[in-house]
Nucleic acid binder design. Structure first.
Lengths: 348, 348
DNA sequence: ACTCGTTTTTGTAACGTTTCAATCAGGCTC
DNA sequence: GAGCCTGATTGAAACGTTACAAAAACGAGT
């Protein structure tokens, strides 16, 4: 494979000149530059990223580690980040931790040997001390997405989770629901805790009481959500509407509903966080709180670039993005509502 | 950041020894190795991939370029490839071409500067001469996935597309359908052509005639599929069942069906290629020809590894994987079938 | 004790770039 | 025509590793 020396020889210039046309093109006279470029073309020369990264002390690589690339949220995120990074001349190294923190840590080590220039991390699970030190060892700027880790001083891009929880719940209340189930993630995660807070706030605002029996932790996963939903449906007084706080759990909930032969929204209403690309194509047509995923990816990359360029310094900035309510047919009036009007208070 | 020299100094050995414990651990005595490892630990030393790739003439990087990471087929593929690669000590560089061949070519150039050791490519669109030469310039083994490119002598892993087309169609025929629409990709792509061939073969085997008016090219994309489906439904004698030859088009078709207020399978039956993770959770519960995606990814990586190890040489091998039929409720008997029995031939 | 194989260890030259100080070639000014 | 300035070009020293040949250490066999 052709090297810079070969190009220099063919164009009859020094290697330094070739390097100059590659990097600071304006420092070399037009005629020479043209000659050099012709030589490169002829030899189909491609610079060696390794050598370059060795000499300059940067690799042009940005790491992106996500929990599950199979989740549309993360694949969209990757797409957005990759596009934005390409525009800035960076290459994105995607790491999929499969939601296992050991894998994630292995990836962080790998990224260190690659000498990435910066990292965008969608942390899986809670902060471990171990991970914090791995991040520090990276010695590069880090931007968190989706889940913030307070106290480490990193930049972050997150959804306004409280508001997301509030709006979803409010929407169900507006349809007339009074018993609203919540299928949530573990409340040790800030994300889940805030969504729960929004849910409670909306209940409070509507003068409804909070019933702990209606909220379940399904770990942000599909299978447990299905199970949790089954339990909620088996309650003596089951909820008439469900709010699931991420896309996987929304699917799990829909599955449980379908398995019991219930129709949506006739028998039960449903709203989730994260819109899904096929949501309008199938039944129930899922209503959702959409996250501006692309914008989040772009914002995260922009923060990183500003850190790298030195135009941003000091303690971590957190960018809060606003959710967007997408109403489709999975939310409707509760069946009870209609009949309850003319029904006596206690029928046992 | 600590270098190999620092480690050597601290452990009081030569740099060569440090390098040896890193690479060929058995060539160095246990006690020294321990000392060196302790020093590495203390300095939290991490080798520099760039320098390494410069000196050894390999980077430990494998490129994977796909058309659309947002498509579950490709995100599953990535997951499988990454897992398998990690087990062999390789890191996967994912490139998302967004189905645009210019992006794909830019990515191939990028991968060349990264000096990847091998490439797994799910080619988007048809073979261009330009791309063929870019691939050749890479000077590394290439394995094609999903779509083969004949004549270039590369290894490939593909689905038995003819059989997939055959089985899907056969299934619909078995339900009693006689007018089966085909929403396919462009038949310049081998994949699409073979699926079409399987479709025709199944019709023939059942003594049904092939009606070109019932087949549409929707470019393997959702939006055009929705459009194509609308056209099929507007036909004077619309099909009673549809076979869509990939997941995006299946969604598009489902959307068109839903938009017209038709029920599935009561009004129309539906089967697609590529199973979807949420297929059982929503209605219609989509039947599908599932591709063994993980196995395909693993097979592709295995081929690549064998090429790299030199245990496989000579002309390209093509591995053909078998599809698996997953029947859910989106296939049923045609409505016409029931009433047509007692109905006169022409009712206008 | 001495020579020979083995096994460990080491010095050092690459690998392909960039950087930086140094040289060179013109063109101005006086 | 000498002196200077400016901008283009270049030589050579890194950057952190590995590979290879050479040196050292170690036993074993005489």
């Amino acid at each position: 494979m052709a090297t810079i020396r070969d190009v220099a020889r063919l164009a009859d210039v020094s290697v330094a000149t070739v390097s100059n046309v590659l990097n600071s093109a304006d420092r070399v006279s037009p005629e020479l530059a043209a000659r050099v470029r012709a030589a490169m073309e002829k030899l189909s020369f491609t610079p060696h990223a390794g050598a370059r990264s060795l000499r300059k002390r940067s690799s042009g690589l940005i790491g992106l580690v996500v929990g599950d690339i199979t989740n549309p949220f993360f694949s969209d995120l990757f797409e957005a980040v990759e596009d934005a990074a390409a525009a800035c001349g960076y290459l994105v190294l995607l790491c999929n931790s499969n939601e296992r923190s050991e894998r994630e840590e292995a990836h962080l080590r790998m990224l260190r040997t690659q000498r990435i220039d910066g990292l965008i991390l969608a942390p899986t699970g809670a902060v471990s001390m171990n991970r914090a030190s791995l991040l520090a060892q990276l010695e590069v700027p880090v931007v968190l997405v989706d889940r913030a880790m307070e106290g480490l001083g990193y930049d972050a891009v997150v959804l306004d989770n409280r508001r997301a929880g509030f709006e979803a719940t409010q929407q169900l209340i507006a349809c007339g629901h009074r018993r609203i189930g919540l299928v949530n993630g573990p409340d040790v995660l800030r994300t889940a805790a805030e969504r729960l807070a929004g849910y409670r706030e909306a209940l409070l605002a509507a003068g409804l009481s909070f019933d702990p029996a209606l909220v379940r932790d399904a770990g942000f996963r599909q299978q447990p959500a299905e199970q949790a939903m089954a339990e909620l449906l088996a309650l003596p007084e089951p909820p008439t509407a469900i709010f699931a706080t991420n896309n996987l759990m929304t699917i799990g909930v829909a599955k449980a509903v379908a398995d019991r032969g219930l129709a949506c929204p006739q028998d039960i209403s449903l709203i989730g966080i994260d819109d899904l690309p096929w949501a309008a194509a199938v039944s129930p047509q899922l209503s959702a709180i959409a996250q501006p995923v692309r914008a989040m990816g772009e914002a995260a990359l922009a923060l990183l670039i500003r850190r790298l360029a030195g135009t941003l310094s000091g303690p971590g900035t957190t960018i809060v993005m606003e959710p967007r309510l997408v109403i489709r047919r999975s939310c409707g009036a509760p069946a009870q509502e209609l009949s309850a009007a003319g029904k006596p208070a206690h029928v046992d």
